[in-house]
Simulated scan of single mutants.
Amino acid sequence: MLNGRDLRVDFFRGLALIFIFWDHIPHNPLAALTVRNFGFSDAAEIFVFLAGYAAVLAYGKIARRDGFMIASIKIWRRAWVLYVVHIFLLAVLMGIVFYANSHVETRDLVQDMGLQYFLSNPQQALTDELLLRFKPNLMDPLPLYIVLLMGLPLVLPMLLRKARYVVAVSLALYLMAPYWNLASQEGGVWFFNPVAWQFLFILGGALALHSQANPAINPRPLNRQPLFLGAVVYLLVTGLVAVSWKWPPLHDALIPQALGEQIYPISKTNLSPLRLLHFLALVYVVAKLVPHSQWLNQWVAQQLCRMGRYSLEVFCLGVILAPLADMLNALGDDAWPVQVFSAVSGVGVMALLALWLDWNKRLGLPPSAMK
């Protein structure tokens, strides 16, 4: 804990940022180490869940201290800043991709990044950008977070008083997700359906409030806690299924055709119940197995915690670095040493940004606050 802050939250946000970055670099061998390879959920769930956790803690504290109106104004001001950042980031991303595409002959980066819509219909694409409907690859999480943050003031008062009612309403909306989504470019829909993903955001916020009011204390050993054992079994089974996707004969042996027709596709857009259950089981098991301890003071953990504290800034940098890493890999003929170098170097640059932001923030603090 640091000034009442759960460093595990920062640590796993930082880890999720690395996973998101690695997952978005084509042919990156280090992407085989990310969480998406060992279950039904991936780093996107970590990012959204912990965003809700952190947002409700931060703005809930402001609401209790200064009132809901002040908290709402600060939330909407933050959402506006992120909206401006989204537009600026998209412009930078397009500039990088168009430049890189003219120097890379082995593949079409414009096509890979989903920017051909801008080339074919630039005026409509610019309009859709302002309406959050034009979202090339890598850009989907930020508009989702903007929409979720915009809606937070509507539920924050009740969330602080009767969180279970908010969770119940959120669950009802989640169940409607297959029938309701926001419009995207060219008649499509949002890749991250806000109607579905708001449930994970709300669950994160509700857990933050519950953890503050009810510290988890269970004297029974873990091997005598049925919920923990059930979560572990589900993680092991889904992990085996996810690994089997790389070996079709193994998958066919594990998943009969009749069962496959029932569980597939495991929708990421609408946050399939199987994905949601996998992530919640993962959260529960990790919370039980990973305690508050000195390991968070180790150098590597400190770097990840720092990245997690500045998650949105680091995420935006990762969006820019991913196509640059892809360009470097293509120029290096996709040799694995080049791929590993670009992936590791990108993480280093993201860590340096977090270090600079932390140093810059400390410059404005009084000496007593820096102790």
Rank of each mutant, 00 (worst) to 15 (best):
A216K: 07
E186V: 06
S184T: 05
G188Q: 08
R224W: 13
Q185P: 01
L200D: 05
Q212R: 14
N193P: 08
L222C: 01
Q225N: 15
G204Y: 01
N181D: 13
N223V: 10
L200I: 13
L200S: 08
V195F: 15
L200K: 01
L200N: 05
A208K: 00
P221Y: 09
L182R: 05
R224Y: 08
L200V: 13
A206I: 08
I217N: 09
N181P: 07
P221V: 13
L207I: 02
I217L: 03
W190K: 07
N193S: 09
R224Q: 15
G187P: 05
W197H: 15
L182N: 06
P194F: 12
P194V: 06
P215I: 08
Y179G: 14
F192P: 06
F191E: 12
F191S: 11
Q212N: 11
I202E: 00
A196S: 12
L209F: 08
W190F: 14
L222W: 11
L222S: 13
W190Y: 14
P178N: 12
L182G: 03
P178Y: 07
L203C: 14
Q212P: 00
Q185I: 04
W180V: 13
Q225M: 09
R224S: 09
Q198M: 13
G204W: 03
N218Y: 05
G188A: 12
P215Q: 11
V195S: 06
G188W: 13
G205N: 05
I217M: 04
N218L: 05
I217V: 13
R220T: 05
F191P: 00
I202R: 02
L227W: 14
Q185G: 00
G204V: 09
W180Y: 15
P219C: 06
Q225E: 15
F191Y: 14
F192W: 07
N214Q: 14
N193G: 07
P215Y: 12
W180N: 12
N181Q: 01
L222R: 13
Q185H: 02
A206T: 04
L200R: 03
N181T: 05
P219F: 10
N181V: 11
V195N: 14
F191C: 00
W197N: 11
P194M: 11
L209N: 07
Q225S: 11
P219S: 09
A213F: 09
I202T: 12
F191V: 08
E186W: 00
Q185Y: 02
F192V: 01
G187S: 02
I202Q: 02
P219I: 10
Q225F: 00
N214F: 15
R220S: 12
G188D: 12
P226C: 12
G205P: 04
S211P: 00
N218V: 03
Q198K: 01
Q198T: 01
G205S: 04
V189R: 02
N193A: 05
G205M: 01
Q185S: 11
R224D: 07
A213K: 15
Q198D: 06
H210T: 00
Q212D: 09
Q185N: 05
Q225Y: 02
